[in-house]
Simulated assay, not measured.
Amino acid sequence: MTDVDTPSLRPEILAFYARGQEHARLRSGGHRLEFLRTQDVLRRLLPPAPAAVLDVGGGSGVHAEWLAADGHAVTLVDPVPLHVEQAAAVPGVTVLQGDARALARPDASVDVVLLLGPLYLPERADRIRALAEARRVVRPGGLVVAATINRFAGLHDQLRKEVWFDPALRPRIAAGTADGRHRPREDGDFTTAYFHEPADVPREFAEAGLEPCGQYGLEGAAWLMGGVEAWLDDPERRAAVLEALRLTESSPALLGVSGHLLTVGRRPPG
């Protein structure tokens, strides 16, 4: 196990997630597309059940729930006390409070590590540390799958919501597009975070000792289309949307159009 002290989240990040909004975000509205596509990609990537899956930064258990129902042995780790409390109610999931940068797990003890949030951390050193911890605890040849927010997601989202048309807010959005550092609005739209260029993520994987082996844009261009929420309400159209997004999910030219990206790596064998 790691022998360093468990780090703490920045106060504004902890305060944002302590509001409890994540519990409902992926379960309703247009954000379901992020959930459905994450589920779709992971079900194709993960080894057959039962695999030992460590869901780091797993929030209230929105993904741990279906992973456990699929037959995987899931342990969820999250630094937010509210998330730990919520996830503890998910059947078949072991829940621990902890931080991605200092996992209280033995070396080479799981088949898969999911980081569906820790790479939002604003400092590169923290992201590399989280990836290195994932490499440490996953077995040789095992998978590490990490989510990142794409560099232009904020710009696209604020344009879609017409926030961009407010001249007072435009400089903040433009600055984040330039350097990847999300600067929250006073109304708490999100929290301090880093938005990646797709090509930067494999470099972070490699620096942590992982072999990058694939990237998947989750929402494609569909999240920017006005009808997406109604499409997801219709089972036939929902299936057609998912089929369309699979056609472009790993196209290098389109990776950055998605709001979120999954990057996959392996711990080298031996």
Rank of each mutant, 00 (worst) to 15 (best):
R124L: 04
R124K: 05
A125Q: 06
D126H: 00
D126S: 00
R127S: 01
I128C: 06
I128A: 08
R129T: 11
R129E: 08
A130S: 11
L131I: 00
L131H: 01
A132W: 05
A132G: 09
E133N: 04
A134F: 09
A134C: 10
R135A: 10
R135E: 07
R136A: 04
R136H: 06
R136G: 05
R136T: 06
R136N: 03
R136W: 05
V137L: 01
V137E: 00
V137N: 02
P140N: 03
G141Q: 07
G141S: 06
L143K: 03
L143S: 04
V144Y: 12
A146H: 00
A147T: 10
A147V: 10
T148Q: 02
I149T: 15
N150S: 02
N150W: 02
N150Q: 01
R151E: 04
F152S: 11
F152V: 11
A153Q: 12
G154D: 15
G154S: 10
L155I: 10
H156V: 07
H156G: 08
H156Q: 10
H156F: 13
D157N: 06
D157Q: 08
Q158C: 15
L159P: 11
L159T: 15
R160F: 12
R160T: 08
R160P: 06
K161A: 12
K161P: 01
E162P: 03
V163H: 14
V163Y: 14
V163A: 14
V163K: 15
W164S: 12
W164R: 09
W164N: 09
W164D: 09
W164V: 13
F165H: 14
F165M: 10
D166F: 04
P167E: 15
A168G: 13
A168C: 10
L169S: 02
R170W: 02
P171A: 04
R172T: 13
I173Y: 11
A174V: 13
A175H: 06
A175T: 07
A175F: 07
A175S: 09
G176S: 14
G176C: 13
A178R: 10
A178W: 03
A178V: 07
D179M: 07
G180V: 12
R181Q: 06
R181S: 03
R181M: 06
R181N: 03
H182C: 05
H182L: 09
H182V: 07
R185Y: 13
E186Q: 14
D189P: 11
F190N: 12
F190H: 12
F190L: 15
T191F: 00
T192K: 09
T192A: 14
A193C: 13
Y194R: 07
F195S: 07
F195K: 05
H196G: 01
H196T: 01
H196V: 02
H196P: 01
E197K: 04
P198I: 07
P198L: 05
A199M: 00
D200H: 15
D200C: 14
V201S: 10
V201F: 11
P202A: 02
F205K: 05
F205N: 04
A206T: 08
A206K: 03
E207G: 10
E207T: 12
A208K: 01
A208T: 00
A208Y: 02
L210G: 02
